[in-house]
Each structure stands twice: as structure tokens, then as C-alpha cells.
């Protein structure tokens, strides 16, 4: 197994993929990206980056599948339960009176975070006027997200987080178990639009009441974090919210001046 890759190989991969397939990993955090690439080489039993690029070029490997393997798609229902408690108690009361609530999940992966937010809005009886734009860089995970069916092995973690969140209603109000899967009711999901979007290069001009960008910035270097947080701030309505991952910070970013910190612990920011 390949144990280390020279930086030059990682950069060569990023350059080639950008030139040929339009995905830009050049400003991803180096150690993480290197680790992902080593993992991919091992997964496909390939000896080098050169061979990996060759396989993609000859269409023996699907670039979308490789992108799915590079980007981390780990997600949970109600991940960091206290963050969701904060959103329920501090953000939603400021949104319920709006005629329409617009929410952008910038890296929705397989959809757990969107469903979590939909449940919060259902609890507050405002789901009908909420509109979700759920995006991800990767088509494959979006296909999974659209199905909104989950393997039963995710159930225990859902329940653990859900209880920690201290919900108003039992989870069965929103979903049903069938054989080795569980499904969320269509009524919960009717206002969700899933779409491919690359935070690094795609442009967007709509504005939202809440923008979720949790555990995405950690994979970027500081320069790219700067650029992406600018983009997020431009897509946030005045006095509206940005939620990032619990170990992330926008304090090094120039756009941090545009925000007030609502919670250092839960990483919730409000645009000035």
C-alpha cells in the first residue's frame, strides 16, 4: 500500500482534474487531500496517481465516483444535538413570522441535515412556508438524498441524537421503518430542491434566512475558506444566519467582519 505521496503528486492530480473535469481541489487542505488520495489508491488497488488519472481518462473509473471518494460525506441526523437546540430556541422564533423561510444546505451529502431542519420547522408548525435548497458537489450523494431512505444501521445514532435534542414528538411522526430501511414522509420533504453545486467555483445570487455550511470549510485551505465564506455572506439576507461545524471558525476570514457571533460554542453567526 502507498503510505506517502509527494506533494507534487497531489498537486499534479489536482491540476489534471481541474483541467480535464472541472473540479478544483487545488486549494483543499493538503494533509486531508493527500490522505483521501492514498485511500483511493488503496481502494482501487492502484500503485500511483499517474495510474489513477489513466483509469479516469480511459473511463474505467467514473470521475463522479472518484469525487465522491475524495469529498467526505459523513453526516448524521441531528449531528451535535445542542446546535439544533440552539437553532430551535434562538433562530426559529425570529423566522416564524416571515411569509417565507429560505434555507440553503450548502453540502447536504445524503440529506440528513436537511431532514433534521425540516423536522425542526415541522415542530414549529412553519414547514409549509419553508423552502430548502439542498446542494452538494457530488451527484451520487444527491441521488441518495433524493430517495430519503436510510439503512436501519443509522437508526440507533438517529435515536441517540434525537433524544439528546429533546424533541417535541416521537420520531415516528416523521418516518416509518420498513424491513432494513426507514423512510421519511413525503410531506416533510415536499419543499426541498436538490441540486449539484460546487462551492468552490459555482456562482449563486439568491439570499437565504439560514445558510448551513457545516464541516466543509475544514477541508479547504485558508485562502479558499476566505473565498467561500465571502460567497456565503453574499447569499445571506441581512440579520440572517450562517451555521458552520462545531470545530470550524470564520475568525480568520475577512467576511467575519460582516457577522456577529451568536454562539461561539454552536458556531452560529448572524449577518450584520
Amino acid at each position: 500500500m502507498v503510505e506517502d505521496l509527494p506533494d507534487s503528486e497531489v498537486k499534479y492530480f489536482a491540476y489534471q482534474v481541474k483541467q480535464n473535469y472541472g473540479y478544483d481541489f487545488e486549494n483543499y487542505a493538503m494533509s486531508s487531500l493527500k490522505r483521501r488520495l492514498i485511500r483511493i489508491l488503496s481502494l482501487y488497488h492502484l500503485p500511483s496517481i499517474e495510474k489513477l488519472l489513466e483509469q479516469i481518462d480511459k473511463k474505467k473509473l467514473d470521475i463522479e465516483e472518484v469525487v465522491r471518494q475524495i469529498t467526505v460525506n459523513t453526516t448524521e441526523f441531528f449531528r451535535d444535538p445542542t446546535t439544533w437546540q440552539f437553532i430551535r430556541s434562538q433562530l426559529i422564533p425570529n423566522l416564524v413570522h416571515k411569509p417565507q423561510i429560505d434555507i440553503w444546505h450548502t453540502a447536504c451529502s445524503t440529506g440528513e441535515e436537511v431532514i433534521t431542519m425540516a423536522i425542526l420547522l415541522a415542530e414549529a408548525n412553519v414547514l409549509d412556508k419553508a423552502y430548502f435548497w439542498a446542494t452538494d458537489i457530488n451527484d451520487k450523494v444527491l441521488e441518495q438524498a433524493k430517495k430519503s431512505e436510510y439503512h436501519i444501521r443509522n437508526w440507533d445514532l438517529l435515536m441517540e441524537n434525537y433524544h439528546a435534542y429533546q424533541p417535541l414528538y416521537p420520531i415516528e411522526r416523521y418516518c416509518v421503518k420498513h424491513s432494513d430501511k426507514f423512510f421519511f414522509h413525503k410531506s416533510l420533504l415536499k419543499n426541498i430542491v436538490y441540486q449539484k453545486f460546487d462551492l468552490v467555483k459555482d456562482v449563486h445570487t439568491e439570499k437565504y434566512d439560514i445558510v448551513f455550511c457545516r464541516n466543509v470549510l475544514i477541508y479547504f485551505n485558508q485562502q479558499l475558506q476566505n473565498q467561500v465564506v465571502d460567497k456565503l455572506a453574499n447569499c445571506t439576507k441581512p440579520r440572517s444566519y450562517l451555521v458552520i461545524g462545531s470545530k470550524e471558525t470564520i475568525m480568520w476570514c475577512r467576511a467575519s467582519e460582516r457577522y456577529n457571533v451568536l454562539s461561539h460554542k454552536e458556531k452560529v453567526y448572524q449577518l450584520k
Binding site: 506533494d7 487542505a29 493538503m30 494533509s31 486531508s32 490522505r35 483521501r36 467526505v72 459523513t74 464541516n215 475544514i218 477541508y219 485551505n221 485558508q222 461545524g245 470545530k247 470550524e248
Partner: peptide
């Protein structure tokens, strides 16, 4: 740890 001597997180 990363090459610019900063920390980087991952939820891989």
C-alpha cells in the same frame, strides 16, 4: 496537522 503548521480537522 498540515504543511503550513496549522491544524486541520476531518470527519472522514
Amino acid at each position: 496537522v498540515d504543511y503550513d503548521h496549522t491544524f486541520a480537522y476531518s470527519i472522514a
